[in-house]
Design a protein around this nucleic acid. Structure first.
Length: 648
RNA sequence: GGGCCCGUAGCUCAGCCAGGAUAGAGCGCCGGCCUCCUAAGCCGGUGGUCGGGGGUUCAAAUCCCCCCGGGCCCGCCA
């Protein structure tokens, strides 16, 4: 094994102890190390294990277990830890001078902190963002994209093969409406137009989509004689008109739609012909979609988010994967006619497959009184539904990447359809796929004092938020670096803004609704991405002032100081914490950990100066610590997709 | 009407799944620290019936039941 790949003393310790605990107590090794990582009070030790939970009611002797662990550790050459039993807990205290010495030995040879690589690498598809190509990415998409991207980074670092995919939903109703808008305005070359008008493609499309949608609703409300609704719609339309890219567009769209007998029929016809791959719809829809995607790509590039594949939903229809699924459904015993259209009998699948199997029940966790309706496959006009196409897409994701697992980052409001999809897969005989499809759901992003609606063109585009945050960051950078070039200041501001936005999107768990307050994202204080970036910049600053690290001068007794000791122990936990965050699909855990580490690092160097330390041995001990923390924070930032800055 | 998620300090949240050692952060507020490695920092102070009520347990913020409040979902939309 190369030294750069060697395991650090802390990871070695955790591995040995977990194995010993697992064998002695008959629990999962994974569970053992997860319990070991639970934070404990410093006075009890560096690691703790709640032994009483397992010893209770069994003929197990805690002292025997302790002795066994001690012996095993001795045999593995791990002599830098002390264990004691206190009120049912097994507490571990590291000999820091000794373990830090081993760590420094590795670091000197090029070892760097990184998440502990898992023993069983899997092939994992992460599908995320997948926004309809009809309007700019907004803050809701931001949470999706950033979660998806961060998960991908974590899983990759954990040693898995990750395939990142964007699903281009070009078949649905939404795109058809946007396309209708482009048609009504007679826009043949959107790209040229957006360049002329200097409007980003997705922003231009967003206006056209919202206006067309609203105009359609206006006409509908008029025909139905709903005057109250009409009033609100007229207001929305007026708001849109204020922002129209070219004078008269709103009127043109509204008038054109008013002339059509039944706009819905027009949309239906468009979808129908597009699904069949007929021209000119084929070219028109693709042109508009591709045009909007260019805008997405620009935004995503800023967020440092990349994809391995861009999958066209229409390809699934044209390449017969959807009809393959439909055929399979027809032959299935769960095929049914529901409300006069083709469907899959989901309730029957639950009854016959899920409820009869204990593991299935656990995997699907279907609430007792939840009625999952049948899944309709085809509309009465012959076009397919999103869920049908998504079944096909799931199969494609598993097949193309030979995936063990597929993670869909999709909003929590889509829980029911996502569950239906998994159940349908199960009923159609795709058992492995059904069990390994994960709906990674997240709650809504709410903007303070604002209700968003894409259909009405009311949303806070990510691009605009980013610009706002960047402008604020620029002020701060400029204040601190008045003599730097504008170019440098701009690039730092961009990175700081990215750090602020990415961090704010992952710092709380996905299951909680997130209230995005632009004011708060502009707060670059503690508990923020920029705070982590600052911590890293400071550590680099110190190292640069020190120059070359004289490893052989280090006096390891220097780590005994309580503050330094605590810091080293905290940082040593990084590989395991990051690994756990990856396994749990919980980037927020890593974020919280990095904040804590930064806190203790910042508190430390401010009280215990490094460069001015007069004792050379102690000084280089501290320098080694700074190097260690610096590399840890850097790796952590990379995992979160936040650019580490050497200076800010 | 049914289901899911959330409810912990004035605000934003961690801890809950795998029950245990005096319930943790940050923001805010009050008071300090820039001839000293970047003050996006540090130090000190302030602040909690863990939504309410029952139950299980030696032990409950954590598990179970009921209730209350907020969000979401129950479409031939996605």
């Amino acid at each position: 094994m190369k030294d750069a790949e060697a395991k650090d003393p802390f990871v070695c310790l955790i591995e040995r102890v977990s194995r010993a605990l697992s064998e002695n107590l008959g629990i999962d090794e994974l569970k053992a190390w997860r319990l070991l990582l639970q934070p404990i009070k410093e006075e009890y030790g560096d690691l703790g294990f709640p032994l009483m939970r397992y010893v209770k009611g069994r003929r197990l002797d805690a002292i025997e277990i302790l002795n066994d662990i001690m012996t095993r550790l001795k045999n593995s050459g791990i002599d830098y830890v002390n264990i004691e039993l206190v009120s049912g807990f097994m507490n571990f205290r590291l000999n820091i001078p000794e373990s830090f010495k081993r760590l420094v030995f590795l670091m000197k040879k090029g070892w760097r902190p990184r998440p502990e690589v898992c023993s069983e690498a899997k092939r994992i598809v992460v599908e995320h963002t997948s926004a309809n190509p009809i309007h700019p990415l907004h803050m809701g998409h931001a949470r999706n994209s950033i979660l998806g991207d961060t998960l991908s980074r974590l899983l990759k670092a954990r040693g898995h093969r990750v395939n990142r995919r964007f699903y281009i939903d070009d078949v649905g109703r939404q795109v058809a409406i946007a396309v209708l808008g482009f048609e009504l305005l007679n826009i043949k070359n959107p790209k040229m137009l957006s360049e002329e008008l200097r409007i980003k493609p997705d922003h231009l499309a967003g206006w056209i989509y919202a206006t067309t949608h609203t105009a359609m609703d206006v006409v509908k409300a008029k025909n139905d004689g709903k005057s109250k609704e009409l009033e609100e719609l007229a207001y929305s339309l007026a708001r849109l008109e204020e922002r129209e890219p070219v004078g008269g567009w709103t009127e043109k769209i509204l008038n054109s739609i008013s002339l059509v007998d039944d706009p819905e029929k027009l949309i239906s016809r468009l979808i129908n012909r597009y699904e069949r791959g007929l021209e000119p719809e084929r070219t028109i829809v693709r042109t508009v979609s591709e045009f909007v995607l260019e805008g997405f790509k620009e935004t995503l590039k800023r967020l440092k988010i990349e994809f391995d594949h861009w999958d066209w939903e229409s390809d699934l229809v044209w390449n017969d994967l959807v009809s393959e699924i439909l055929d399979r459904a027809k032959k299935s015993k769960y095929y049914m006619i529901h409300k006069g259209v083709e469907a899959i009998n989901i309730p029957e699948i639950i009854k016959e497959i899920v409820l009869k199997d204990k593991d299935m029940k656990k995997n699907f966790k279907i609430p007792r009184n939840l009625e999952v309706p049948p899944l309709i496959l085809v509309r009465s006009d012959g076009t397919t539904l999103y869920t049908t196409r998504d079944i096909a897409y799931t199969i494609k994701k598993f097949r193309e990447f030979s995936a063990d697992k597929v993670i869909n980052v999709v909003g929590a409001e889509q829980r029911l359809p996502q569950l239906q999809i998994r159940l349908a897969l199960l009923g159609l005989g795709f058992r492995k796929e059904a069990l390994n499809l994960i709906h990674y759901d997240y709650e809504m992003v709410r903007l303070v004092g604002m209700k968003m609606s894409g259909r009405r063109g009311v949303y806070m585009a990510l691009d605009n938020i980013f610009d706002e945050v960047k402008a604020r960051a620029k002020e701060e950078v400029l204040k601190r670096n008045p003599n730097e070039s504008l170019e440098w200041i701009d690039s730092v501001a961009e990175a700081v803004a990215l750090g602020a936005i990415r961090f704010s999107m992952i710092q709380s768990s996905a299951s909680k609704p997130l209230t995005f307050d632009p004011e708060k994202a502009l707060n670059f204080k503690e508990n923020s991405g920029p705070y982590l970036q600052y911590t890293y910049a400071r550590s680099v600053g110190i190292l640069e002032k020190v120059g070359e690290i004289r490893w052989n001068l280090i006096d390891y007794e220097g780590c005994k100081d309580p503050m330094r000791r605590r810091l080293i122990v905290n940082a040593m936990k990084f590989p395991m914490i990051a690994a756990k965050a990856a396994d749990d699909l919980a980037p927020e855990d890593l974020a919280t950990y990095l904040l804590k580490l930064s806190d203790s690092f910042n508190a430390w160097y401010q009280r215990d100066p490094v460069i001015r330390e007069s004792n050379e041995g102690i000084k280089y001990c501290k320098v080694a610590m700074v190097k260690f923390i610096s590399e840890t924070v850097k790796k952590g930032l990379e995992l979160l997709g936040i650019p580490p800055l050497r200076r800010m």
